[in-house]
């Protein structure tokens, strides 16, 4: 046996355990989901899979389907949640990176929404947003405004549930930025200061570029979180009013478990997978591009 062959075999052997797990828990379920999405399987077929070709997708993307709204809602929520929570996280990290008296207290108060279980957080905000006695409306009235039925209004519900994700997510993202800031080499900063760089220039040309890896990671986490966080919908709006705050993952849950239309739910899951893959590829390409530019 040549040494080259031996090296290859060794490599394969070392990869094998993770390969087995990857195939079993990722590749196979994905393949199974895609296959199942071509079958109609609901109570009308008495839970038996019936070959339906693209039937589920046709139903999903029919002109009068609620799914369009669900997709729009999901993309809207991500478009709000990701930039706001990432920017806020960065600003909070800058703030908390200072040596100020009482900073520990501030740090924990910004981080604490992360520790709360989502259902508890959602229950708190359900009461805060309540039209009759919620704190938010008490405040609005105090400053002379008119009480708003925030969760019960189509125009506000999606903003409100997105806000709760931001509230919950920002502290979590902040930790990564804080770690990045604290791991920042001090000699570079000193050199910049000696060269007469102001705060803005230091930020623009040193801090931000050095945090690029962190930012890419943080954006990935923010996007996956925005896709995955649905528990609060169950508590706060159940996707209502009239689907105004229905998000993709919550819709999949409803389709499968409440409406028992698993074929359709598989098709929706495939759409979710495709969206996540598109995002991951885009993110990787952008990240690679930037690191290439930097060289």
């Amino acid at each position: 046996m040549s040494s080259k062959l031996r090296a290859i075999l060794l490599g394969v052997a070392l990869l094998l355990p993770s390969l087995v797990f990857l195939v079993m828990f990722t590749a196979l379920p994905v393949a199974q989901t895609i296959i199942n999405s071509f079958y109609r399987r609901n109570l009308a077929t008495r839970n038996q899979p019936v070959w339906d070709g693209l039937g589920n997708y046709v139903r999903l993307f029919a002109a009068d389907s609620d799914f369009w709204q669900v997709l729009t809602n999901t993309l809207f929520a991500i478009a709000i949640v990701v930039p706001i929570s990432v920017i806020l996280a960065f600003l909070f990290a800058l703030l908390l990176n200072q040596r100020i008296r009482g900073i520990g207290w501030l740090r924990s108060s910004i981080f604490y929404p992360t520790i709360l279980p989502m259902v508890s957080a959602a229950s708190i905000w359900l009461l805060m947003f309540n039209v009759d006695f919620g704190l938010v409306n008490t405040f609005i009235k105090l400053v002379g405004g008119k009480a708003q039925n925030i969760l019960g209004t189509t125009d506000w519900a999606l903003w409100a549930v997105s806000f709760v994700i931001i509230w919950k997510l920002t502290g979590f993202l902040m930790v990564f930025y804080l770690a990045g800031l604290q791991g920042m080499p001090t000699d570079v900063m000193e050199a910049a200061r000696l060269d007469g760089a102001g705060a803005w220039h230091t930020m623009r040309y040193i801090t931000l570029p050095l945090l690029r890896g962190t930012t890419i990671f943080v954006i990935t986490v923010a996007v996956t979180n925005a896709f995955q966080t649905v528990d609060h919908l169950y508590v706060m709006t159940q996707g209502g009013p009239n689907n105004a705050s229905n998000l993709l993952l919550f819709n999949i849950y409803e389709t499968n478990f409440r409406f028992q239309d698993s074929g359709l739910a598989y098709a929706e899951t495939v759409v979710l997978l495709v969206l996540l893959i598109i995002f991951t590829i885009a993110n990787t390409v952008v990240a690679d591009q930037r690191s290439f530019d930097a060289q």
Partner: peptide, 20 residues
């Protein structure tokens, strides 16, 4: 009657608090 969609869970509280 208040506008918009009214929550089921807190309506008894609104009644008990004399808000409705």
């Amino acid at each position: 009657h208040p506008t918009g969609v009214i929550p089921w869970a807190t309506t008894p509280d609104a009644f008990l608090a004399g808000k409705a």
